[in-house]
Amino acid sequence: MADANLRLSGQAAVVTGGASGFGEGIVRRFVAEGARVGIADLNLEAAQRLAAELGAAAVALAVDVSDAARVAEMATEAQARLGPIGIVVNNAGVPQAPGALTDMPEHEFDRLFAINARSVFLTSRAFVPAMIAAGGGAILNIASTGGVRPRPNLTWYNASKGWMIAATKAMAIELAPAGIRVNALNPVAGDTPMLNTFIGGDSDEARARIVATIPLGRLSTPADIAAAAAFLCSPDAAMITGVALEVDGGRCI
Rank of each mutant, 00 (worst) to 15 (best):
N186G: 09
N153F: 15
Y157S: 04
G146Q: 11
A178T: 06
D191C: 04
R149I: 02
A172T: 10
G179H: 11
M171I: 04
K169I: 12
G147S: 12
A184F: 06
N183Y: 08
M171E: 08
L140R: 05
T155Q: 07
A178V: 03
G190M: 03
I142P: 00
S160R: 01
R181V: 09
G146E: 08
N141G: 11
M171V: 03
P187F: 07
R181H: 11
T168M: 08
P150I: 10
W156F: 12
G190T: 04
K169D: 02
A159T: 12
W156L: 14
P187H: 11
M164L: 15
G146L: 05
A166S: 15
A184L: 08
A159V: 10
M164R: 01
T192C: 08
T192F: 03
P187I: 07
K161I: 08
A166E: 07
T145Q: 05
P152E: 12
R149K: 15
S160H: 03
R149W: 04
Y157N: 04
S144P: 09
L175F: 15
N153P: 01
A189N: 02
V188A: 14
T145V: 15
A178D: 12
P187C: 13
A143R: 01
G162Q: 10
D191V: 01
S144N: 12
N183V: 09
G190K: 01
G146T: 03
V188E: 02
D191E: 14
A172K: 07
A170W: 05
A167M: 14
A189R: 00
A178Q: 13
M164G: 01
A170G: 14
A143C: 14
A166W: 02
R181E: 10
R181G: 06
